[in-house]
Nucleic acid binder design. Structure first.
Lengths: 243, 243
DNA sequence: CGGGCAATTGACTCTCATCAAACTGCGTGG
DNA sequence: CCACGCAGTTTGATGAGAGTCAATTGCCCG
């Protein structure tokens, strides 16, 4: 896979034009390709000396555990997303990272990351910008947990994933393949798995979306947008401020 | 106020040693001092060309509104905190910023910010590190909204504020002055104001904390920590990776 | 064929929102 | 100096949304 085709380049390319040099630097970042099996954590809260990764294929989740045994998934990462950038900046991982499926990811050692920032500041800015965009997503999740009911939360979540997946060519207007179990959805949306099931049934019976056999299919996209009060503004920022 | 005494320098100084040059650059960042009255927003979602601010005194909240009229406060900022960094990086504000009290803040134009990154990379790294720490806090809030009940949330919130305020000398082991109304607490914790009141009463009757007349007083700090499952790890990261 | 995991459904419970109504402290203006 | 209004706090009563417990179904895979 060349950098031009990599989901990461594709995502950045949707917002800025990258020079040949920058594309080749991107390609070099993809040299340390690794695979990880589903379910075994890549990184644990409290670990130091973390590497960052760029996800090439498969899905990942970032989560935190509470001592009472429950867990909260902070976000899912899809191809083209950066993993563990904050953990690198803070020197210690502040959350756990678990592959949801078999994944391929390119390890980016701190040194390479710093050198990239130095050698191609435009790429550095792009990475920072992507990180800010991810943070905006986390904020939106927080708003959902605080002020949306279960139906709205689910609708919003499915729509956000749709927008993100479209950017890397993994979704169409009709829907997308989604490898998440109802337990994972529950941990992400702050609900119980049982309630997730009921909410999905409701949305299906309302004729809005179906989520069955790992496939999300929109029946009434606009209706879903209306229900979720979904506004893509937080995803559709202008590209990074390029030096 | 010299940079040495500013809450921002004080906060950074708790994690790294700053050179005289760096302190003087910091001081220059504080030149455009402005004041804002409580209740009138400094910045609105969707606005472009945002400036960033360093908060010198007073309290601020960042929030988002939903079309159904409810609002979710994402975080409060206290003296020493940066405001609107993400809005600058994304070129568009993705949330609103409202002073809770009369505040003093130093405006930091994008240009100055970039120049600082360029001229004193260590300060740039420090700012980035502080931003990552703030993001870790947002993540912790998200976990609270998703997986903690009202009592735990309130306890955790009061403890986090305590830790943050201590860092800039605004709290003692006994407690701190807190200008937040129960409505603000409600919007931050994803609760109704009525329920906030009941929860505060409960915590008081359990002999853990009191929050009355704008003063938070700990009666049983350890008991509160236990109830909240509070772990300062997400606040106590090592200092920034200094180039 | 049996084990195991995810999805599904029903019955019951509990936390928290909502509505309503006092009550407080406080600044303003008559 | 007091009446008034207002914003914030406090308390009670009721109901809805979501959790928990439990049982069943469907399906994949050894």
């Amino acid at each position: 896979m060349t950098a031009l085709q990599s989901p990461f380049a594709r995502k950045l390319g949707a917002f800025v034009t990258l020079s040949t040099l920058e594309l080749s630097v991107l390609e070099r970042l993809h040299s340390r390709r690794r695979t990880f099996v589903a379910g075994r954590d890549i990184s644990h809260e409290g670990q130091t000396d973390q590497a960052a990764y760029i996800l090439a294929s498969g899905w990942v989740c970032s989560y935190k555990l509470l001592t009472n045994g429950s867990r909260q998934i902070v976000d899912f990462q899809i191809p083209g997303d950066f993993l563990g950038l904050r953990s690198v900046l803070l020197r210690t991982a502040d959350h756990n990272i678990e592959p949801v499926t078999l994944i391929e990811a390119s390890e980016v050692p701190v040194k390479d990351l710093m050198e990239t920032f130095d050698a191609t500041p435009r790429l550095g800015a792009a990475v920072l910008w992507a990180a800010s965009r991810d943070e905006a997503m986390v904020v939106e999740h927080l708003v959902g947990l605080g002020r949306r009911d279960a139906r709205e939360r689910m609708a919003h979540f499915l729509l956000e994933l749709s927008a993100r997946l479209k950017l890397v060519g993994l979704a169409t207007a009709d829907g997308y393949a989604c490898p998440l179990s109802q337990y994972l959805l529950a941990d992400a949306l702050g609900l119980s798995a049982v309630h997730v099931n009921r909410v999905l049934r409701e949305l299906r019976e309302m004729g809005l979306v179906t989520f069955q056999n790992g496939q999300v299919t929109f029946q009434d996209f606009d209706g879903l947008v209306a229900l979720a009060d979904f506004d893509t503004a937080y995803l559709d920022h202008e590209g990074p401020l390029m030096p």
